[in-house]
Design a protein around this nucleic acid. Structure first.
Lengths: 135, 135
DNA sequence: TTGTACTGTAATAAAAAATATTACAGAATG
DNA sequence: CATTCTGTAATATTTTTTATTACAGTACAA
């Protein structure tokens, strides 16, 4: 996960949680995160597909949380932006070597276990709790 | 961690664990992992700096485990190759926004906690246990 | 009904990170 | 002293990530 997507998604959702009575525009959010508004819209599009955010088009439109922050777990955010397991990717080892032949199978198991472990940890923290740290 | 270094390092160490009575050359290991030998030498150089591997130069040289596989925890491998926290990097948010100003501080705490959690999980598995899955 | 302020999305460009390759000096062996 | 290794650096290539631009479509409000 050598990218900034978890940070971006959590930032977006934190803003939506704190200003829960307003529709926030991508331009506003982009100003806070300090990235291009198109990046925000793209991430929001992903968060919508994951059922965390909804939005309203047109003038005066913007985004809001699909559910109360108390019902969103940080694990859902992690799963929404995860592209690669926590421990990284695998090689394409030599199948003629006894280790090379089996290593990816065992690696995959380990990757899954570790990932599940992270998910379990993050499922103990709600967005409400995280957003509560601000002001 | 969108890279292959954990997989590579674990593969190297598994070979060293299984063939613990021999010195393995970087060319041999590269053949099993299916990457360039220079990549293996570079990773071994890192694993040496972390105290997991030793090697002998010159003709007939090669690498071997610095300690018995039973005394190497997978967490040490993770820590040897980690460049970035499990949840990724942070943005450089707008300090004029109350959320932007503090988000990295709270993110960092979360990143550290999650990372420690992964380390704790991986510290319960020894290289011996992992290597034991092969033949 | 028309201008304005949004979203949604795609295409493309630019920057950064990861990996591969080549090269060669130096060490140990026989 | 030729051979077979390691160690390391320099460089090239590929892949991933991020930024930018553009514009169609939607909703509001005058």
């Amino acid at each position: 996960m050598n990218n900034v997507r978890f940070a971006t998604a959590l930032h977006i959702l934190t803003l939506l949680a704190i200003m829960k009575d307003e529709l926030l525009s991508s331009a506003f959010i982009a100003g806070s995160v300090n990235v291009n508004a198109a990046v925000i819209r793209k991430e929001i599009s992903n968060l919508k597909a994951c059922g965390l955010v909804e939005s309203k088009e047109g003038k005066g439109g913007g985004s809001f949380l699909a559910r109360p922050a108390s019902q969103i777990k940080l694990s859902e955010i992690y799963e929404a932006v995860r592209l690669v397991p926590v421990l990284g990717r695998a090689n394409t080892p030599n199948p003629k070597c006894p280790v090379g032949k089996k290593v990816n199978e065992h690696l995959e198991t380990l990757y899954e276990e570790t990932d599940n472990y992270v998910v379990r940890k993050l499922s103990t923290i709600s967005l409400e709790e995280f957003a509560g740290k601000f002001g």
